[in-house]
């Protein structure tokens, strides 16, 4: 498993956790039926809050991931080359991270294809949210469908990226 696959798994897992947390929170609030949960302003606040939590969580997860990735590389180098100096390890880690994190044409192509799936999912969610209004759902349900479809699109984007990294990709 390469660097990009590992990074995508971490980002997708964080996205999934935040989305699931929001989903449970939303279900709980709607079932509770409190007066504030009927207001669109309340949901706008909550959704913005969860978007913020999502961004911060991804940043923190990326920092932790890079630290753990460097540690795992150092351990691997120590085990493979006994008697290697700490400076040499540091140099090798820097070199490996530099070459692994290169965003080349294959990465960009995979990202584009995955992004398309994400946009399609979000688009379908948007249409679904409008249909839910027509079917008599409240605007609160509509806004939640909208937010969750964007979250689902983001998670699917990650899954598609991993799929293409595993299976390979061709132009056209």
């Amino acid at each position: 498993m390469n660097y990009h696959e590992k990074r995508t798994i971490v980002v997708s897992l964080v996205g999934l956790s935040v989305s699931l947390t929001y989903l449970f929170y939303a279900i709980f609030k709607i079932r509770e039926g409190s007066a504030e949960s009927l207001l669109m302003k309340f949901w706008a606040e909550r959704i913005l809050l969860f978007i913020g939590i999502g961004i911060v969580s991804v940043i923190v997860a990326m920092i932790v991931f890079h630290i753990l990735y460097s540690i795992s590389l150092a351990i691997k180098l120590k085990m493979e080359n006994e008697g290697i100096t700490n400076e040499a390890i540091q140099q090798r880690i820097e070199q490996t991270i530099k070459t692994d994190t290169v965003e080349d044409e294959m990465g960009k192509l995979i990202e584009l294809k995955a992004m398309r799936i994400g946009f399609v999912t979000a688009g379908v969610g948007f249409v679904g949210s409008l249909v839910s209004l027509l079917l008599g759902a409240t605007p609160v349900i509509m806004i939640n469908i909208l937010y969750l479809s964007f979250s689902l699109g983001s998670i699917l984007e990650g899954i598609v990226q991993i799929f293409y990294y595993r299976r390979g990709i061709r132009h056209g």
């Binding site: 692994d100 290169v102 294959m106 132009h171």
Partner: peptide, 23 residues
């Protein structure tokens, strides 16, 4: 080879294995 061509090692590996057709 990846350094010379300015891509990642994973991309060279994918091309070698026929998993990716380069530009």
């Amino acid at each position: 080879l990846a350094d010379v061509t300015n891509v990642s090692r994973q991309t060279i590996n994918a091309i070698e294995l026929g998993k990716y057709t380069p530009s």
